[in-house]
Structures are given as structure tokens and as C-alpha cells.
Simulated scan of single mutants.
Amino acid sequence: MSVTAKDRDILARTLWGEARGESLSGQIAVAWTIRNRVNDGKDNSWWGEGYAGVCQKPYQFSCWNRNDPNYAYLTGARSIPFREFAQAQIAADQVMSGKVPDPTGGATHYYATTMPEPPNWVKGAKETLKLGRHVFFKDVP
């Protein structure tokens, strides 16, 4: 699959919106979760097609919801701080190019531990990693 400049930009913006307070390793883990959705091997995937399609599909990543406080930054209405966005771009580049292994063990889901309670989909899913303020899962029913 070819990766476009738009894919890189949308993935980096998603990483900033979802995990800007995380280390580079934490952002790489979130990026791998997105890559695992992109590469799920199914035609016309439910997740969406390509990085931009997966990231911006409604209700997959809350930072792209119009009522989310991050949305104005992701759409360019407000400026993302340079250093924070640069780290997200590094994470995006490393994951899209395959320069770093998947620390999540194939996760397709995660949630932030700052949520009041875990989402319902964790029941029956296999936890693969806890890193920073995120918990990662695969085999989500």
C-alpha cells in the first residue's frame, strides 16, 4: 500500500490528538494500533481504507469528533505546538516505514486510563500492553 503525504499528516495529527502527553514510545504504540487497523487484510475494511481513512472514520478516534476540544487543532483552525507535532510526525514516520516493531502485539484497540471507566468492548478482549496512560487490546469481540 502506498502512503501519501496526507496519510502522514493525518496520522501525525491523530497521534497528537490522542496521545500528545505520551512519550515517543507511547505515540508509537498508538500509531501501531492504527497501522494494525490499516493492515487488517480485509477488503473494504470496516476500519476504513488507508491511514487517513482509518483515522478519520467517524467515532474511531475521538479527537476527530467535531465536539472534541482537539478538533480545532486537527483541522488547522488552531495551531498545534511545533515540538509536540514534530514528535507525532516522528512516531508516524517510524511506524509507517516499519522502522520500529509493534510493541502492542497486534492491538487494534486502546483506551486512555484517564477515562472514568473502561469501555464495554474490553470484556472478552486480550490485553497486550500497558504503556503510559493507555491500555492496548486485540481480539476484541
Rank of each mutant, 00 (worst) to 15 (best):
A5T: 14
D7F: 06
D9S: 12
I10D: 10
L11V: 11
L11K: 12
L15V: 01
G17N: 01
E18L: 02
A19C: 03
A19N: 02
G21H: 08
G21T: 06
E22Q: 04
G26P: 00
Q27L: 04
I28S: 00
A29V: 01
V30P: 03
A31F: 00
T33I: 02
T33P: 02
R35K: 15
N36Q: 04
R37H: 03
V38E: 10
N39G: 07
N39T: 15
N39E: 14
K42D: 11
D43W: 08
S45N: 05
G48C: 11
G48P: 05
Y51N: 13
A52L: 10
A52G: 04
A52H: 08
G53C: 14
C55P: 08
C55F: 04
K57M: 14
Y59Q: 14
Y59G: 08
Q60G: 09
S62Q: 13
N65S: 08
R66N: 14
N67H: 09
D68P: 06
Y71M: 09
Y71D: 06
A72H: 08
A72E: 06
L74D: 06
A77W: 03
R78Q: 09
S79C: 09
S79I: 11
I80G: 07
F82N: 15
F82I: 09
E84R: 08
F85N: 13
F85R: 12
F85I: 14
Q87C: 07
A88W: 05
A88S: 15
I90D: 11
I90N: 10
A92E: 06
D93G: 12
D93V: 14
D93I: 11
K99N: 14
K99S: 15
V100Y: 02
D102T: 08
D102W: 06
P103D: 01
T104V: 00
T108N: 02
Y111L: 03
A112E: 13
A112I: 12
T113Y: 06
T114P: 03
T114G: 12
T114W: 07
E117G: 14
W121K: 05
K123M: 15
A125K: 07
E127M: 15
T128F: 01
L131Q: 09
V135L: 00
D139W: 00
V140T: 01
V140K: 05
P141C: 04
